[in-house]
Amino acid sequence: MTASDTSAAAPAVLRRRPILVTGGAGFIGSNLVDRFASEGHDVLIYDALARSGVDRNLEWLKKRHPDKVSAVIGDVRDEASVTDVVRDAQAVFHMAAQVAVTTSLVNPREDFEINVRGTLNVLDALRQRGERVPLIFASTNKVYGDLADVELEKTNDAYKPRDPRVRNSGIGEGRPLDFHTPYGCSKGAADQYVLDYARSFGIPTCVMRMSCIYGQRQMGTEDQGWVAHFLIRALQGEPITIYGDGCQVRDVLDISDAVSAYASAWRRIDAAQGRAFNLGGGPSNAISLRQLLTHIEEVIGRPVETIYDDWRAGDQRYYVSDTSLATRELGLKQPVNWLKGVAALARWLQEEHGRSPSGSSPSRLHKAEAL
């Protein structure tokens, strides 16, 4: 679908040199759109609406910013359509992707087409414009592989690196790339294309290698968005399946902090161009799945049923971002504490679903949010 196939609002926005957000109805994309529109920017969303629930995000954005937000329903695999929406953009935030490792194992060709060919379509549309239009790309910590060489020990329901340097700082950008699973390969290849288009063609691009982002407007599933998924299942009184032993650790980052990092990368693009940054909550927000479940039980005021299953392909037992480079170069502030952020997400999910879960206590939720 091209821009001409959408409502009359899209061409009007295009003439105002909008910020283009591919995947703009998704979790991170919708929060980016909301931030930029709230700041007074015209924003064009380009999204295939393939993920369940994202149509609600799009409806919310249009109601919230009727004069600032427009949308083109389209697929990044459609080269002509991508060229249309990129033509007048003042900046591009490329969030559109196939996002699940499990899906990539079922259909690796589609995973490649969306993540590699789709990204190349966006990049080449910018190259053909012949202007220095910034592009900020959503990459992943999966570009570093399974990190099997990082020696670990179990303490307090969580894996910890034996090396104190890694334990205290996390995984840095100097870590060698090591693509595992089709998803890791496709996102890793796209990551490298984005960086090379800065080297080869002078396009001001920047890569954000994200750890686990959570927060409002996240439609978490078992395959992707595990913090929201755990909360949704717990609030609905349904069991949660843990793949592995539950001691695997990730650094979690509230969506407000992730959006600020993306916005800063754009505003500091002269310094950020051609560079990759690890983006996560860092060591201070590193938690295991079991630790999250314990906190969720405190938030909702009752136990959560858990089921354990085998490890999944490519799962890292430990990944925590060394955020020092991003903090320094992008001017990032101290991130939201995960205890407070997760409790706030639980409250939002309750309001979004329009019901109070059986056995939960509103006062308990409020108390947890104040942590």
Rank of each mutant, 00 (worst) to 15 (best):
D5M: 14
D5T: 07
T6E: 15
T6F: 08
T6C: 12
S7W: 06
S7K: 11
S7Q: 09
A8R: 15
A10P: 07
P11W: 05
P11T: 00
P11A: 01
A12V: 10
A12D: 12
V13L: 13
V13K: 07
V13G: 04
L14V: 00
R15E: 08
R15W: 01
P18F: 02
P18Q: 06
I19H: 09
L20H: 05
V21Q: 08
T22Q: 12
T22K: 13
T22R: 14
T22A: 09
G23W: 11
G23L: 13
G23I: 06
G23M: 12
G24M: 06
G24C: 06
A25G: 14
A25P: 10
G26K: 10
G26A: 09
F27E: 09
F27R: 12
I28Y: 11
I28F: 14
G29A: 13
G29K: 15
G29Q: 14
N31K: 10
N31D: 11
L32K: 12
L32R: 11
L32A: 10
L32W: 07
V33M: 13
D34Y: 08
R35Y: 14
R35Q: 13
F36R: 15
A37I: 10
A37L: 15
A37K: 15
A37M: 14
A37E: 12
A37P: 15
S38C: 12
S38T: 12
S38R: 15
E39F: 12
E39Y: 09
G40R: 15
G40F: 12
H41V: 03
H41G: 04
H41F: 13
L44F: 03
L44N: 05
L44A: 06
I45H: 07
I45C: 11
I45L: 11
Y46M: 12
Y46W: 08
Y46S: 06
D47F: 03
D47K: 07
A48G: 11
R51I: 01
R51W: 02
R51L: 05
S52V: 02
S52H: 11
G53T: 01
G53P: 08
G53S: 06
G53N: 07
G53Q: 05
V54S: 07
D55S: 06
R56L: 05
R56N: 02
N57F: 01
L58Q: 02
E59V: 00
E59K: 09
E59P: 02
E59R: 11
L61G: 02
K62G: 00
K62E: 02
K62W: 00
K63Q: 03
K63Y: 00
K63W: 00
K63H: 00
K63E: 02
R64M: 03
H65N: 02
H65C: 03
D67Q: 08
D67R: 13
D67G: 04
D67C: 02
D67V: 00
K68Y: 02
V69I: 01
V69G: 02
S70P: 05
S70W: 01
